[in-house]
Write a protein that binds this DNA or RNA. Structure first.
Lengths: 246, 246
DNA sequence: TGTAGCCTGTGGTCAGACCACAGGAGGACC
DNA sequence: GGTCCTCCTGTGGTCTGACCACAGGCTACA
């Protein structure tokens, strides 16, 4: 059935995927040179390059020119970039609604906070702690604050050790980064809002450290939905991930 | 900073993204022909094709040869395919652990079930209902069952109306589809397991229809983690999304 | 023995060519 | 005058060949 019209670049993609699944390729390995790959698979070099471009954007490989061990296409399996590109473009193309992106953030980040709280004591949260301290050290511009804010949220996901959620969160975040930035510019008082956000960050961290899973989830929920409500980007009235509140 | 080495295909990708954000391109619109795009942006046609390939895999466009209104590259914004490819390849390249994929399914599907329950009565669940009926009509092979099982879970996500979660779920699902299939083959008694799974499906649907958010979440949690535990694919002991059970 | 230059292999890019395909326009036939 | 057929055009799909920039290793020279 797939033999009717196997697109040439698909052949390459499938071959790489099969090599990965069969263990012939692992993270850190080099892919064969483009010209070799083309000859081996019986396709043109252009088609190989199209497939490699996809793999690169998806975060599976990184390419480098020159010679030596660091040159060529190398398997890296770094999902963050691909997830970000995918989500960003889907939001741009209206395949994803901003409100849905925010809702999904609520679900994922709420779950992360709850899980971290339930494992309080055995999780290292010093990275998140340091980011908060850095945020509170001096007044920050909107851009600087949002950058550190992103780092804080991501550090929580990373602490959980769940690569899938971490990458997905990073993608969601970057997809609506432009909207968050635009929203910050229209706030009545940025110093007031940023001060509140920092307090909420502390509250989230404390709830996690004290093992209060539900409190942590609610704090994250309020933190995220509050910001988007204040900036009029999305009114997230959904009961998603907060059905346990009553 | 980006002026140091703007990769030619990146130029194309950025141009398309900007056109989307600025409203010059919308779903249903045609992209300019490859040759025109290449001339306009001052890059070679190969580079344009690399960018278009990325957009195609990411689910943003679909391409068709020939002439007429249906030919050419058209904005479609269908995130499912891109999410599936990304997750599948990341799992293959060991960027995503299977256990993390399953955990993320628990979080997302649990949240979906809870939300649907909290909106019971105003949500149309006839699609899910019909799928369950179809599953119960006659004995099914593993492959047939798993296909309908996928449809059931997806129909719940679609009922929620959240495109982001729906696409993410679809991607997660397809990423571990191979493992689920392999697991089914190793079960002691497939008829017994499938019967149990169908009962659990009914339980989930009933909990949702009755507006029992927590019960629905727990039922989904047990349903998914139970299957993967039984097939020894992943022991999901995480408290994620179930911290409210105490 | 050390160093400077070349050499080779790699990805990055472009230009051109050809093909398959689908739709439309025009003419030929009834 | 209407209908059918054929050719023409524009599109993506693919391949080939060429050239460039780059980085590392190798060799020849001092």
């Amino acid at each position: 059935m797939t033999a009717i019209a196997p697109r040439a670049w698909q052949v390459v993609l499938d071959a790489v995927e099969r090599d990965l699944l069969d263990g012939r390729l692992s993270p850190g390995d080099h892919l064969p040179p483009e010209r070799t790959l083309a000859a081996d698979l019986g396709v043109g070099r252009s088609s190989v390059r199209e497939a490699l471009r996809v793999l690169e954007v998806l975060g599976l490989i990184r390419t480098a020119v020159g010679s030596g061990p660091s040159a060529g296409a190398i398997i890296v399996a770094r999902p963050g970039g691909g997830m970000s590109a995918l989500m960003r473009l889907q939001v741009a193309a209206q395949g994803f609604a901003v409100a849905d992106v925010v809702k999904t953030r609520l679900v994922l980040e709420g779950a992360i906070a709850a899980e971290l709280a339930s494992r309080a004591g055995v999780i290292d949260l010093s990275a998140a702690e340091q980011i908060l301290t850095a945020m509170e050290r001096q007044p920050l511009t909107e851009a600087e604050f949002l950058a550190l804010d992103t780092q804080f949220h991501l550090s929580l996901a990373e602490a959980s050790g769940n690569q899938v959620i971490t990458a997905t969160m990073a993608g969601l975040r970057s997809a609506i980064e432009g909207y968050a930035r635009a929203g910050a510019a229209g706030l009545a008082s940025w110093p007031a809002t940023s001060a509140r956000l920092m307090l909420e960050h502390r509250g989230i961290l404390i709830a996690i450290l004290c093992g209060q899973a539900d409190a942590a989830r609610l704090a994250v929920h309020a933190h995220i939905s509050g910001y988007y409500a204040e900036t009029h980007l999305a009114s997230v009235s959904s009961a998603t991930a907060s059905s346990t509140t009553r």
